[in-house]
């Protein structure tokens, strides 16, 4: 139990964490609002580290929707675009959203 642990198991966890702090510092939400959203999302599901950050992302999406008016559909469209962009990016190169073959259809 005392072995050193890296705080994040994957880069996306660190990104989600940093987004949350950055948004709080911008004043988008209070820390109390964030912990309330996180504890709602956690419920009893966060059995391990990966599930914990899955819940974290879910809580963050909800709070951002509430505060900025984004919708689940907007987020889902962009997430699909990112996945298509990843598929279209040659291995070893950084994934960019511009690589999405359908980019002209969804990126205004």
């Amino acid at each position: 139990m005392t072995r050193p642990e890296h705080p994040f198991d994957a880069p996306w966890q660190a990104q989600a964490f940093a987004l949350t702090l950055a948004l709080h510092e911008q004043g988008l939400f209070t820390w109390g609002e964030w912990t309330a959203a996180l504890s709602d999302a956690l419920g009893a599901d966060a059995q391990d580290g990966a599930m914990y950050y899955q819940c974290w992302v879910f809580a963050l999406e909800r709070l951002i929707d509430q505060k900025t008016g984004t919708t689940e559909a907007q987020r889902a469209n962009l997430a699909h675009a990112w996945r298509r962009a990843a598929q279209a990016t040659p291995h070893g190169e950084p994934i960019k959203l511009e690589n999405d073959p359908e980019a002209s259809l969804i990126c205004q």
């Binding site: 990104q15 962009l78 291995h91």
Partner: peptide, 30 residues
């Protein structure tokens, strides 16, 4: 080839939305 899990893509989508809105700066996140 390159591949993003759904959760990875969701986080990237959030970052894109928030960067476009000017709410986060990728350098500050790093």
């Amino acid at each position: 080839d390159n591949h993003l899990d759904p959760i990875e893509a969701r986080v990237r989508a959030l970052e894109t939305i928030l960067t476009r809105k000017g709410l986060v700066d990728p350098a500050a996140m790093d």
